[in-house]
Computed example of a mutant assay.
Amino acid sequence: MKRQGGFTLIELVVVIVILGILAVTAAPKFMNLQNDARKASLEGLKGSIQGAAGIVYGKAAINGLEASDAADAEVSGIPIKFGYPQATSAALGAAVNGLSTDWTCGTPSGDSIKCTFKGKDSYLTSADACYVEYTQAKSASAAASTTVVATGNSCS
């Protein structure tokens, strides 16, 4: 009599157990994708702000305003300080395309302003900080700076 080919019940159970073990060890690696996407979005915003600040500075240099700290200094309708956009929602919104519609910026604090995801104002002040901070130029020899802050559980 011929033996039928196939898998026994024990072999199938062993394969299922091995697949379960692999799934349990690999699943946490894929669970952190949302936080990685948040960080990548913040890095993209940082690049946008830096690029826009560079363009504004170039326009200011062409107009001879790169050393100006006058309160009414503007380039293409963008308020500037030492050639770079001022740290205000209005100035950054005019310089960065889509900033006002896709992101929210807090109240300026001294020479800096924090921007985060639209509707996520709590990311600006809580322990779960998740934002981009833009600091305007403080002198003609110091450029504006942009940093990403991603701490806590919401963005880590």
Score class of each variant (00 low, 15 high):
Asp128Gln: 06
Ser76Asp: 15
Lys120His: 11
Ala91Thr: 01
Gly51Gln: 03
Lys46Gly: 06
Ala27Pro: 01
Pro28Gln: 07
Gly98Lys: 14
Ala27Cys: 07
Lys114Ser: 15
Ala61Ile: 04
Val96Gly: 00
Gly64His: 13
Ala127Gly: 15
Asn63Arg: 11
Glu66Asn: 12
Gly44Val: 12
Ser68Asp: 15
Glu43Asp: 10
Pro108Ile: 01
Asp72Gly: 06
Tyr123Pro: 01
Ala27Trp: 12
Lys120Ala: 02
Ser109Gly: 11
Ala90Pro: 08
Asn97Thr: 13
Gly119Val: 02
Ala53Asn: 13
Ala95Phe: 08
Thr107Phe: 07
Lys81Glu: 14
Gly64Leu: 07
Gly47Arg: 09
Lys114His: 00
Gly44Ser: 15
Lys59His: 13
Ala70His: 03
Ile80Tyr: 09
Tyr57Cys: 12
Ser68Leu: 03
Ala52Ile: 00
Phe117Lys: 10
Ala70Arg: 13
Gly51Cys: 10
Tyr57Leu: 14
Lys81Asn: 12
Thr104Asp: 12
Pro79His: 06
Ala127Val: 00
Phe30Asn: 00
Ala67Lys: 14
Lys118Val: 08
Tyr84Gly: 04
Gly77Phe: 10
Ala71Trp: 00
Met31Gly: 03
Gly83Met: 07
Ala70Glu: 11
Ala129Glu: 05
Gly77Gln: 06
Gly58Tyr: 01
Ala27His: 04
Gly54Ser: 14
Lys46Gln: 11
Ala95Asp: 05
Val96His: 04
Ser68Glu: 10
Asp102Asn: 10
Gly54Arg: 05
Lys29Phe: 08
Phe82Cys: 09
Phe82Thr: 01
Leu124Met: 06
Gln50Leu: 15
Gly44Cys: 05
Asp36Arg: 13
Ser68Gln: 07
Ser100Ala: 15
Leu92Trp: 02
Gly77Thr: 01
Thr101Gly: 13
Pro79Trp: 08
Asp128Cys: 01
Asn32Leu: 09
Gly77Tyr: 04
Gly51Arg: 04
Leu99Ser: 02
Gly110Asp: 01
Ile113Ala: 07
Gly58Pro: 04
Ala87Pro: 06
Leu45Glu: 10
Ser112Pro: 05
Ser41Phe: 05
